[in-house]
Amino acid sequence: MKRIGIIALALFIQQVSAQTNRFVYQVTMKPDAENKADIKTENAYLDISQEKSVFYSENKMKRDSVLQKAFQGGAGRVNISRDLMEGLRSNINYSVEKDKANQKTTFKERIGRDVYSYEEDRPIAWKISSETQKIGEYKVQKAETDFAGRKWTAWFTTDLPYQDGPYKFGGLPGLIVKIEDDKGEYSFDLMKNYKIAEISSMNQFGKPLKVKRTDFVKQQKKFQTDPMSFMTQGSGGISAPMRIGGGRGPGGDGNQNPADMRKRMEERVKEEAKKNSNPIELQ
């Protein structure tokens, strides 16, 4: 009986250690270079397991889940509530995965109809300070770095046994509780954490196209100048017709002139690009 009890305890400890920890960050952004008063705030998850971690938007996960269920519901035209989709808009349209075994960081983001992925090739060099303070319930220590054209100040805690953090940041002796650039345009603040069964699977709607980081940047710039070339071509797009909204009003009529639809779509995509003219990475 004693041996059985020891085995049961060992299995319980193994099960607990195999659980995934979810850290919820509040992300504050000023994505419009011409309108710094336009501040966007949303939540993002950092899910950490024994093998890896994944950072992604809460709204994007919900939005992708709605689309996935809609398209799995049957072929033909799909009707999705415009209000629902508008409520799930996100400025964090990417995910970042860190593999603990090989120390690789993979970035994924959709451009037009395709999802691109690349392996981050720039190591983050930290300068750790002796300065400490208290943020919430955690004693934190200061660290600084220059990364992708911005100067960042991070506060990490050794109270949590994870050398990780939001976005591409990590590699400090503890978990990053807060990190902000020196212009105050992007910040990540840890709000809470809890355990989940496993890391959520990302709905990519197509196999990611693996490219070099420099090629991804080129595609991003091309998309900003000629977005429609990405909407009419691509191997990873959703081929099923979709209508967001419903009814016969503007945007809800399935018999619109294709040229007018293309023009409106192009204007909308260019307007979105303009509103995201101050990206987190400047170089």
Rank of each mutant, 00 (worst) to 15 (best):
I6V: 11
I6L: 14
L9M: 13
F12Y: 09
V16F: 07
A18Y: 12
Q19R: 15
A37W: 06
I39T: 13
Y45E: 02
L46A: 04
D47H: 06
S49D: 07
V54N: 01
E58S: 05
N59S: 04
M61S: 09
D64Q: 10
L67S: 03
Q68W: 14
F71D: 03
G74H: 08
V78E: 03
I80C: 05
I80K: 05
L84N: 10
G87V: 12
Y94L: 09
K98V: 04
K100R: 13
Q103I: 01
T105L: 06
T106D: 01
F107Y: 15
D114T: 10
E120I: 08
S129P: 00
S130K: 13
E137C: 00
E137L: 03
T145K: 01
D146E: 12
G149I: 02
K151S: 11
K151N: 06
F156L: 09
T158L: 09
D159W: 06
G165S: 02
P173T: 12
K178F: 07
I179R: 04
K183M: 08
S187A: 14
S187E: 09
F188W: 13
L190D: 00
M191L: 14
E198H: 10
I199D: 04
N203R: 03
Q204M: 14
P208E: 09
V217N: 15
K221V: 03
S229T: 09
M231L: 11
G237M: 07
G254T: 15
N255G: 08
N257Q: 13
D260Y: 02
D260G: 01
E266H: 01
E266I: 00
K270F: 08
E272A: 14
